[in-house]
Amino acid sequence: IDNFTSVIGRALTGTFYPVLQQAIVFGSAFEGWTSREEEVVYRVLIPLTPPLGHAFHVERDADQQKPGRNFRVRVELECICPRHHQGANPLCFLHHTDVVRRRTRQPNLLDSLCTGFYLDVQKTVLWFCALVRASWRRLPQSRSWHLVLLGSTRSCNLRLNNDQESFLVKVLFGVQRHTSDIFITSRTRGARMPSTMWPETYAIAETKFFRYMARRVPQDSSHLRCLQLLACVLARKDFSIHSVKTIIMRLLNTIPVTQWHRRYFLLQLSDALEQLRLSLEEKHLEHFILGNQRLPEEIRLPQDVKRAKPPNLFHGLAQDPATHALAMQAYLDLHHR
């Protein structure tokens, strides 16, 4: 992916499209576990920063009816004139929009990838996919790999295959919140999501937490084995895999690292099952990142994320007795295996 962004970045020189930053890998494939015995999806986030003469302003969506925390990216033209000499730079979009368009023959970001004043997810995805198609033949990998772009409105999905193997890469786009490990991204959350809405994601922080713990637990730690086992079994029950991952992260953050040695595998698996049982019975499991004041210092959170009230991941179970009964049955089936 970095090869893509490097080639595309050179092609974008002198334009007013978003600047592509170094790709960030995240998700189970890079944490050392998978939830199903199916194909592994490699998830990548490409952070976007504003081009010259533009600024991004992240605004929280006020609609509390939508699930999760959602944001919009307001794009504003920014003065690039010398200080105290506004209007002196003929290439300043803010003061000389028509002149810049005429000289550069390039639209500003508001004209290209925005709907109104807001960065549009679908337009951004289509733009990047077009750049991938145009750039692929310039990459050395194109000599030995075949690329297929799979349709999606909020991500760029790449199928890469050759005679021996095939894999899927899901590319998301995001804007970093301050200098933290929290991003607002193009990921899908719920149906009929407006194309100018960017949900907040904590996946980068979660992957960073797993890497942090990997440096501290014993070399033959059992935490990934526990997570892998529970995830694979519960995936067949249509159970929320993220809730299982949340329980393992909470145990990792509370149990002394020495107790994750492989000889304690059955004990840790029992602890995880007990935490799952209690959470299901209480219909309550707090989000691991949001509102967590006990994360390692190297995992950087914005203040509003630190101080947020942790949402209940089992809120849906509390609202729907039938779904709760199915979840409890899935747990009982797992417990008696």
Rank of each mutant, 00 (worst) to 15 (best):
D238T: 08
L227P: 01
S222F: 02
I255N: 05
H261C: 05
N253K: 07
L251K: 03
R250Q: 15
Y264P: 00
A231K: 00
T246E: 07
I255E: 09
R236F: 03
L230C: 10
A235G: 11
S222H: 02
L229N: 14
D238N: 13
F239D: 02
R250P: 05
L266A: 14
I247A: 04
I241P: 02
I248T: 08
T254E: 10
R225M: 12
R262N: 12
S243F: 06
V233D: 04
T246G: 12
S240E: 07
H242D: 06
L251Q: 03
M249G: 00
L227Y: 02
Q259P: 01
L251Y: 01
L227E: 00
A231E: 00
Q259A: 05
K237Q: 13
S240V: 01
A235Y: 06
Q228E: 15
M249K: 00
T258L: 14
S221E: 04
Q228W: 11
M249E: 03
L251F: 04
S221C: 13
F265M: 04
R225S: 11
N253C: 13
I247G: 03
L269C: 12
C232N: 10
N253E: 14
C232K: 11
V257W: 00
S240H: 06
H223T: 01
L252Q: 02
D238F: 09
L234Y: 09
S243Q: 12
L230K: 04
H261F: 04
Q259Y: 06
L269H: 11
C232W: 06
L251P: 01
D238S: 13
T246P: 09
K245Y: 05
A231V: 02
W260K: 03
L230N: 00
T254S: 12
Q228C: 13
R263K: 15
S270A: 14
R236Y: 08
L234F: 15
W260I: 08
I241H: 10
Q259M: 07
F265L: 11
W260F: 14
L224H: 11
A231H: 00
S243I: 09
Q268V: 08
L251E: 04
P256F: 06
V244T: 14
I248H: 02
R225V: 09
R236N: 11
L227W: 01
L227I: 03
A231M: 05
D238H: 13
L227C: 01
S221K: 01
R262M: 14
C232V: 13
A231I: 01
A235I: 07
L229E: 15
M249W: 00
S270Y: 07
L266R: 12
D238G: 07
S243E: 11
I255R: 12
F239M: 09
I255V: 15
C232E: 09
L234R: 07
L229F: 15
L227T: 01
S221L: 08
T246C: 14
R236L: 12
S243A: 15
R250A: 15
F239N: 04
D238K: 13
S243H: 13
H223S: 06
S243R: 10
I247W: 09
M249L: 09
A235R: 03
V244R: 04
F239L: 06
Q228T: 15
F239A: 07
K237R: 13
L230I: 13
R225I: 08
